[in-house]
Nucleic acid binder design. Structure first.
Lengths: 167, 167
DNA sequence: TCAGATAAGTTGAGGATTCAAGTACAAGGT
DNA sequence: ACCTTGTACTTGAATCCTCAACTTATCTGA
C-alpha cells in the first residue's frame, strides 16, 4: 500500500463539529434575520446600517474610504459600491481629500443621520432579542472573548499600522 | 416638553456593544476568509461546500429540496439557485420524487463527491486555523453553547415539525 | 528629477441572494 | 366530484458582492 505520503488531514472531532455547526447555523440565521428586519424597516441591508453607524460616530461624521473599509473589515471595492448606493439615497456624500488628491471622504448627511436614528431602535431591539436577551452575562462575556480572538487571528497583519493621514 | 410618549429604546451597554462588535467583525472576517479559501481552491463559495457536505452525509447522498433547505437554514429560493449552479457543474443532479410529484431530490454525484473530498482538507484546515487552534477547550465549549442558543431562538417555530415524507 | 513601486479609489463583468410572483400538485372539507 | 387552501419548488428582476483591471496620485531611492 502506497499511502505513506498521503497526509490524512486532522478532521474535526465530534465536539468541534458541534461547535462549528452551531457557528454556521447561528450566523446564517442571524445575518438573515437582521438583513430582513432592516430591509423591511429601513430599506437597507445590515452592512449598510453598520456603515452609517460607523460614520455617525466619526469626528464630523466623516471618514476616509480606506479607513472606513478597515473599520468595517470589508474590501475597498465593496465599500465603493456601497457608498455609491448610499449616495444615491442621499444618506452619504463624498468629498475630496485636500491633502491627498487620490483620497475621498465619505460623509454622513443629515438625511442619512435621520434615517439611521429612525432605524436604530428596531435594529437594537432585534439584536437584543436574538442575542442578549437569551444569554447570561457570563455567556455574553465568553462569546465576546471567543469572537474577539477569532477576529484578531483574521485581521490583516498590519491593520493597526498607522494610516499615513493619522501621522 | 412633550416626550412622555416617546419610548426611548434600551440601547446596548458598553459591554454589550463590545460583544456585538466582536460578533460583527469576527463573522465578517471569517465568512470572507472561508469564501476566499474555497473559491480559490475548489471553485465554490462556503455555502456551496456546506451544501455538498450535507448531501454527502444523507442516506444515498440525496435529500428533498425542502429538507435540505431546512438543514442548511436557507430559503428554498436560494437553494434552487444554488442547486441549479451545482447541477451545471455536474456536482449535483436532481431527480423527481415518485411519491409527490411536486417534490425533487437533490443528489450528490460521484464527481461532486470527489470535488468535496478534494476540498475538505483545505477547508478543515482553514477552520481549524481560524477557530479551533486559537481557542481553549473551555472557550470552544462556551462559544458553541452561546451560538447554539442564538440559533435556537431564530429557528422558525416549527422547524422540527415532522416533514410529511418522513411520516 | 525621474522611474518604478505603492497606495487610494473606482469600475464592470460575472456570480450570488432576495423578493415577489408563478406553476404544479396535494389535502381537506362539502 | 369540486373547490379552496396550502405545499414544493422555480423563475426573473433587482440588488449586492467579488475579482481583476484600471486610473490617478504619492512615495522612494538612485
Amino acid at each position: 500500500m502506497d499511502t505513506a505520503h498521503v497526509e490524512e488531514p486532522r478532521w474535526l472531532s465530534d465536539e468541534e463539529q458541534r461547535v462549528w455547526r452551531a457557528y454556521v447555523h447561528a450566523t446564517a440565521l442571524l445575518e438573515d434575520h437582521l438583513d430582513r428586519q432592516l430591509q423591511r424597516d429601513a430599506g437597507m441591508p445590515h452592512i449598510y446600517y453598520v456603515l452609517l453607524a460607523c460614520l455617525s460616530e466619526a469626528p464630523h461624521r466623516r471618514l476616509r474610504m480606506t479607513e472606513l473599509a478597515m473599520t468595517m473589515k470589508i474590501t475597498r471595492s465593496r465599500l465603493s459600491h456601497a457608498v455609491a448606493r448610499l449616495e444615491k439615497n442621499g444618506w452619504v456624500r463624498r468629498e475630496d481629500c485636500p491633502s491627498d488628491k487620490r483620497g475621498q471622504f465619505a460623509i454622513l448627511t443629515d438625511q442619512g443621520m435621520s434615517v439611521l436614528k429612525q432605524a436604530a431602535p428596531g435594529h437594537v431591539n432585534a439584536v437584543r432579542q436574538a442575542v442578549f436577551n437569551r444569554l447570561s452575562p457570563d455567556q455574553q462575556k465568553a462569546l465576546g472573548e471567543a469572537l474577539q480572538i477569532i477576529a484578531e487571528g483574521l485581521e490583516p497583519k498590519d491593520a493597526s499600522a498607522d494610516l499615513p493621514w493619522l501621522r
